[in-house]
Design a protein around this nucleic acid. Structure first.
Lengths: 168, 168
DNA sequence: ACCGTACATGTCAGAACTTACATGCCAATC
DNA sequence: GATTGGCATGTAAGTTCTGACATGTACGGT
């Protein structure tokens, strides 16, 4: 049921169309949850039918903008505060990292370098985002989350560099 | 196809039964990939039919022990080194962290404290594992992975503590 | 001898998710 | 005025995953 709550959460930030939500999943949420448009559009229909969101406008190119309802806000809060979190994860990258000791030194080094390139790319994007937020007039409530992303990618990068130099 | 490769990877470490594999998913792999026994047993059947693993013995209580084959090892290496990683993640905890700014201060503090308790529990388990590994006669190839887990949980714990004290 | 628990494997219906197909709108460029 | 590309929504078939049901085995305690 996480997709449902991810959509409610995004709509609680600001009213959006399915297309915009799809982009948010790709951009901001890709390190936490993933969903394609073919999953999002039907789910929006179900959420509307359940009264948790409502259609607030139709724009150009048949776009439909939804907003969260009061019932939706109640459900979102209930889920965030009262529901027992499911701590299980699905991360192919994590699985790969777990299995790298099975590779020989050359292959291991190669995959670590590939991962390091990706981590550095992420880190640069997050730092750019932090810089934009620092210049913004309004304080950005999601700044701590960006900071956490920077810290986690930093330790990951350090670890990868250690592995690369150790794997002689 | 990650389940397939997760199973190949675990069997490359040592021959195991489906039951043992299910436990490894719960214990060592829960922060990377999750799978229940109802998914594992059918997948083992498919892997055997594909010649990537083979039945090497039947033990007490009708248990069946599988081992990876040479073809399986080739496929595992191909996937780890040559296949383009899917960097997308599914982490309900990450999603919750991303959405906490939507809560009021009291609710936010409560959920951060719940998360902190979990992180400290994880950290204690990983440190205990590191201590056991340090005492072991043979060097443990998975020690760096344990170290990475400790570091990530450490920064997560620090971040959570900051959020709790800041959220006045 | 009986009971509870951990061991051990399996199936199945339904939900979630992916990939591909399908359609149409609007703006810019050629 | 034709084409291209990004905007925008939708459906459908097939795969993966979950949760419940189902069955039987060995061991330790009482």
């Amino acid at each position: 049921m996480s997709l449902r709550h991810a959509l409610l959460g995004l709509l609680a930030r600001r009213p959006s169309s399915g297309y915009e939500l799809t982009q948010m999943f790709d951009r901001s949420l890709s390190t936490s949850w993933h969903a394609g448009h073919s999953q999002i559009y039907p789910e929006l229909g179900k959420l509307e039918a359940a009264g948790l969101i409502r259609l607030v406008g139709e724009g150009a190119r048949r776009s439909k903008t939804y907003d969260i309802t009061d019932a939706g806000r109640v459900e979102l809060r209930r889920w965030l505060v009262e529901a027992e979190p499911d701590r299980s994860q699905r991360s192919e990258s994590g699985l790969r990292l777990f299995l790298t000791p099975l590779l020989d030194a050359a292959d291991r080094k190669q995959t670590f370098e590939r991962d390091l390139a990706h981590v550095e790319h992420e880190l640069a994007a997050l730092k750019a985002l932090r810089a934009v937020q620092a210049d913004a007039a309004e304080p950005e409530v999601f700044a701590p989350q960006v900071e956490l992303g920077i810290r986690i990618n930093t330790v990951l990068g350090e670890w990868l560099r250690e592995q690369i130099s150790t794997a002689s």
